[in-house]
Design a protein around this nucleic acid. Structure first.
Lengths: 211, 211
DNA sequence: GTTAAACTATGATAATTGTCATGTTTTCCG
DNA sequence: CGGAAAACATGACAATTATCATAGTTTAAC
């Protein structure tokens, strides 16, 4: 967004609208046609896909400042993921026409979007390799660290995004019971501690080294 | 490439060079700085990454007409995958400057690249979900079908790309022995047949439905 | 053509992960 | 606050997959 001219920014500001979602709300579903892009101003949402075995898989989490729906708007295809609020969210919505027109008229903005997608692609490919090569235990550890690094911790040290065990399982690609079991193990090993469903990373170094 | 003007095409043609690789040759390694993009004119290569457990994982296969190194050139980062020839390959190499200049000056070409990346991203995310949710058996079956659909079959019906069992294991994300075992099962079940290392899909319908 | 090296095959066993069952704790709402 | 629903926890067992060992086949180089 920083590469837009003043004039373009004014246009975007003029046509964008704010939208609010509550925890659990569906922002959009798989296989929908979007008519714009969402940018998160506040809150977190998960991008999920229902797989053929009936389970939801969470592909990634999106937080403040991130764009949702970019890919679908660019490719002109329907969404292949759904977006679901993990807490209360404030979004701003920019109509498709506005985004596409900026992409077509502003070289720098367009290149920026290109770099974004390139980055997303790298992350997706890395994720694929993790999924293929690492154990569930390692993936749970990595997810905890990722959530801590990306969305931060509260003053009391607990992860500021609190996900259910089912959410963790869905990110890691395992059964909910397995995720629960592994988090319990981590507790016993002193790697994390919990208070209700809140999680605190107690030993990041060793958590990173989990085998 | 079709969206370039005659003048631009002339420039690309002027500065591109042809390169040849033999089966097993490394086109580039992980963590290299590329100074251009490769386009496959003939042959197949695999994009792999060495994972922390010491195994190579094959992220995707690239065939005729596909661009390699696009992502790195756009993001300006080092490669995160290596490219290795699976058979004899003829490439054409276009210098980075030429590609970037076309992206910056030709709106339509730039949008085309954008759509390419969007497509790649979707494939990577779908792959991630497959990896997370499907059994090794299902992934082997899907890989066979993918290879058949994408790279075709010879007149005699055998897959025209012949991968080793190790290659299949590396794509599917499993141990070589497991890949071998599953292919043997498929043979017994009449889903495929083999002749040396060549594979023929005998019953595509049931192969698609494997559980 | 022969022969070593690479690849394919298969069994036995261990490790990992999933599933089902059941009980406890936490959260949320009236 | 109380009670129901959701989330968490854990055991027992089954299924999947990895690992190690060993042997047969194919490929490719000389």
């Amino acid at each position: 967004m920083k590469t837009l001219t003043k004039e373009e920014l004014k246009q975007v500001t003029a046509c964008k609208t704010n939208r609010f979602y509550k925890k659990g709300d569906i922002i959009f579903n798989e296989n929908e046609l979007l008519n714009g892009v969402y940018c998160i101003r506040e809150g977190i949402c998960k991008m999920t896909k229902l797989s053929s075995n009936g389970k939801d898989h969470t592909v990634k989490l999106m937080g403040k400042g991130q764009l949702i729906g970019q890919r679908s708007i660019i490719s002109g295809e329907r969404t292949h993921l759904s977006a679901i609020a993990l807490n209360d969210i404030e979004m701003c919505f920019v109509p498709k026409e506005q985004i596409l027109s900026n992409i077509k008229s502003n070289q720098e903005f367009s290149f920026n979007v290109l770099q974004n997608l390139a980055q997303d692609l790298r992350e997706a490919e890395d994720g694929l390799i993790n999924m293929a090569q690492k154990t569930v235990r390692q993936r749970v550890a990595e997810t905890l660290i990722y959530v801590g690094n990306t969305f931060g911790e509260n003053e009391d040290g607990y992860l500021s995004v609190s996900l259910s065990r089912e959410d963790y399982a869905s990110i890691v690609g395992t059964a909910t019971e397995s995720a629960i079991r592994i988090l319990s193990q981590f507790k016993k090993e002193g790697l994390i501690s919990t208070k209700g469903k809140k999680i605190k990373i107690e030993n990041k170094i060793d958590l990173e080294r989990v085998e």
